[in-house]
């Protein structure tokens, strides 16, 4: 089982560190495999920020994300720039205020007010990335809630604001996920079908 995720936003939203924490949760706290990369240079014009994460139970061979199972966008610029990476039927998670979805995207969609929630529960929008991670994990189970919590504690230490943002994220994610259960196995099976046609 292999998950390919892209998280996008603009500089200062903590997109890169969110990707690292997510991957660390898998590698350090679940003993699984992950690759995290980020784009530098020309792709980053206009203050865009993007991280690619692959999480798997076996070694990740090809390190890039071409067709993402999950795209997370914390800013409308990222939504405009990255919707192409999502595979048909993939999952699109956005900040409902910062990155409202306009037009058609072939994906299952979750619009959640991460920044507003983070501000409300932790006093700062800077924790929107943590709130997002909580929701992402609640929706996808890409890593366990325990692993994510442990990875966050490693990085940020025990802080009330972090815990509050994370808990709010879990809660929001669970509410949205109640409707749709997402399983990566189906995507994986689809991937092999694609390669078989080579």
């Amino acid at each position: 089982m292999s998950w390919k995720l892209v998280i996008g936003g603009v500089g200062g939203q903590g997109v890169i560190s969110a990707g690292i924490v997510l991957a660390e949760a898998a590698v350090i706290h679940e003993g699984r495999y992950a690759v995290q990369s980020q784009s530098y240079g020309a792709e980053m014009r206009g203050g865009l920020s993007r991280t690619d994460v692959t999480i798997s139970n076996s070694e990740v061979i090809y390190p890039k994300v071409d067709q993402a199972h999950v795209l997370v966008c914390l800013h409308r610029k990222a939504l405009n720039a990255y919707t192409g990476v999502i595979r048909p039927g993939g999952l699109l998670i956005t900040d409902s205020d910062e990155a409202p979805i306009r037009g058609r995207v072939d994906s299952r969609q979750f619009a959640i007010p991460f920044a507003a929630t983070a501000r409300e529960v932790s006093g700062s929008e800077r924790n929107a990335n943590i709130c997002m991670l909580g929701a992402l994990v609640a929706i996808t189970r890409v890593v366990s809630r325990e692993a994510l919590t442990a990875a966050l504690l490693d990085r940020f230490g025990t802080r009330d604001a972090v815990t509050a943002a994370l808990d709010a994220g879990f809660r929001l994610g669970n509410e949205h996920a109640a409707a749709v259960a997402v399983r990566a196995d189906a995507h994986e099976a689809g991937r092999h079908a694609t390669s078989a046609r080579m």
Partner: peptide, 10 residues
């Protein structure tokens, strides 16, 4: 190269 140098993995 840059790819391996910058990417993170286990």
């Amino acid at each position: 190269d840059e790819m391996l140098g910058h990417m993170r993995e286990r």
